[in-house]
Each structure stands twice: as C-alpha cells, then as structure tokens.
Simulated scan of single mutants.
Amino acid sequence: MTLEAAADANYGSTASGSSFYAAMRILPREQREAMFQIYSFCRQVDDIADSDGPREARLAALQQWRDDIDALYQGRAPARLRDYAATVKKFGLRREDFLAIIDGMEMDVPADIRAPDMATLDLYCDRVASAVGRLSVRVFGMPEEDGLLLAHHLGRALQLTNILRDIDEDAGLGRLYLPREALLHAGITSDDPVKVAAERALPKVCLPLADRAKRHFEQADEVMKRNSRRAVRAPRIMEKYYRAILELLLARGFAAPREPVRVGKLARIAIILRYAII
C-alpha cells in the first residue's frame, strides 16, 4: 500500500482519492500531469500487491515493473512508460525512488505483513510513502534538503495514520501493520490480525503510534513553514486532511468496536479554500 501517503497508502478509498485529487488539481499543468503519472504508477503496482492472484505471479509482475523502470532510465521506455521519459528528465525523478516503491509493495507479497518490528515498519513506510514523497517534492520544485526532509516526515505521518485508520480493513485482508514491540508492551502476544483487532489492550498499542505520527506531522509542518507557499500547497492540503483524520481517530478511540472515520465535506472544502485559493 502507498501516496496518498505522500498519494495515500490506500488507493481504493474514496476519501483518500478525494484528498489526492484536490491537492493535485491546484498544480500547474506540467506538475499536475507529472503527479498523475506518479499516481498511476503507484496504483498499478499497488493493485498487483493487493490482488488475490498467486503470489508467484504477483512477484513476477512486480519484477517486470522493475525491468521496465530500468529500461526507462536506459532510454528504452516500454509502451506503458513512454510518456514518463519527458517527466523524468524535466523534474529529475530518480530511478531509486521508483524501485523503492516496488520494493515496498513487494513486502506484502511473499507473505502478508503481520506485526513487523519497528525497524521493518519504518522501512515499509519509507518505501511505500516517503519514496513517493521524494518523487513528489521534485515535481513541486522544493529545495533538495528540505524536500527530502518533508518526504521523510510527511510520508511517515500519512502512512502511520493510514495504518491506524485501517486496522479492521487490514485485518480482513490478513494483515497487521502494528509494530511487534508495541503489541508485546501492551501484553498482546498474538499476531493474528483479527484477534489483535479485538484485543481490549489495543489502545495501548495505537496511542504511542498516533503520537509518533503527530511528531512527524509537526516536523513536516516546520519544513513547510520555511518554504515557498506555492511549493508546498499540495503537500499542505494532504497534511491538513490527514491530521484531521488522526484527530478524528483519537477522538473516537481505538477500542473495539470501531466506527470508520471520515473528514466531512465542509471540512475538506475549508482545507482546500484555505491552502489552495486564499
């Protein structure tokens, strides 16, 4: 899963789709088209990882994407990436970031992720979210150092928020992204996603993860404050949208049963008006 985690880690969700499209539609045409190319790439590899096809076939399909990315950077772009050549050149997009996204998607394929240790979870967030951010900040035109910092912090903030939002949905897919150390600290020894989702001690796992997401949001905010408003309009909209989701999750709590949370239409419009137009 990925940007809207810097797209969103859950491409199938209507809510996440709306935040991405709202943020990207305000960009100038060349930037907007580049971002939709990045989104299309992420969605296609995400769909492979999340499909119910044989694992061997999914691994082969992801390897084909690696081969196609290599060919793109060798000047032999395959048909499905032909339009990317000009974008890669214009914005200086890095091959390593495209490959990192594929690597992140592949982490769910050999076996479903279940209670990774914190280091593995952070690597997953870097690949499926911050790597997308590293491509995106080049399109936005941010300075190199601050762009990398923003991708690091905002990508992790968005991805952790997605994980906290999607506990029950992920459990239904046999996946559990909550870190093993936090589960054990709360006295939860199972890594069965459905059992963990029903645990009474689950808030003890989720609240520290929410605090970690909030710290990443705060650090991302510091980076955006010192950069051009125009350069950070799109990531600012996604930051505000996902911060609102995190606040709704905290207000609802993490004890079962959990009702889905969604940022209301008026709140979404207010974010867009404030950061895209006014």
Score class of each variant (00 low, 15 high):
F98C: 08
E106M: 11
P78L: 06
I113N: 03
L154Q: 12
A85V: 10
D117F: 09
L148T: 01
P143W: 07
Q74D: 15
A71H: 02
P78Y: 06
K89S: 15
S136N: 04
H153Y: 13
H152M: 03
Y124V: 06
A111K: 14
I113L: 14
Y73F: 15
L93I: 04
L148Q: 13
K90Y: 00
E169W: 00
R138K: 15
T87H: 03
G75Q: 12
H152S: 10
I163L: 05
A79G: 02
R95D: 06
D83N: 14
L164M: 12
R114T: 14
R156D: 05
F98L: 10
A79H: 10
A131I: 08
F91M: 06
R165G: 06
V128I: 15
A86F: 00
F98Q: 11
Y124S: 08
A71P: 01
L135T: 09
A151E: 06
L93Y: 02
I163S: 01
L121Y: 13
A77M: 05
D112F: 12
D70P: 01
N162F: 03
G155W: 01
D97N: 13
E145H: 03
L81P: 01
G104E: 11
T120G: 11
R134N: 08
G104P: 11
P78R: 06
E145C: 00
A131T: 05
K89R: 15
P78G: 07
L154G: 09
R127Q: 15
L81F: 14
T120M: 13
E145L: 05
A119T: 13
L164S: 12
E106T: 13
V132M: 03
A111P: 00
V139E: 07
A86Q: 14
A151L: 04
A71Y: 01
A86K: 10
D70Y: 08
G147S: 08
R95P: 02
E145V: 10
R134S: 10
P143C: 07
F140K: 08
D70H: 14
D83A: 15
D103P: 01
R127W: 06
R114S: 13
A85F: 00
A171T: 04
R82P: 00
F91D: 07
A115E: 10
Y73L: 06
A71W: 03
L121P: 10
G147L: 09
A151Q: 03
L160W: 01
D70Q: 13
D108S: 12
M105D: 08
L150R: 07
A151G: 05
P116R: 12
Q159Y: 04
I69E: 12
M118S: 13
V137Q: 14
K89L: 11
Q159N: 12
L154N: 09
Y84G: 00
D70I: 04
S130H: 06
S136W: 00
Q159T: 02
M142S: 04
R82Q: 14
A131F: 07
A151M: 09
D126V: 00
P110E: 12
A129V: 10
D112A: 15
A85H: 02
D97Y: 11
G133S: 10
G141F: 02
A171E: 09
D168E: 15
S136L: 03
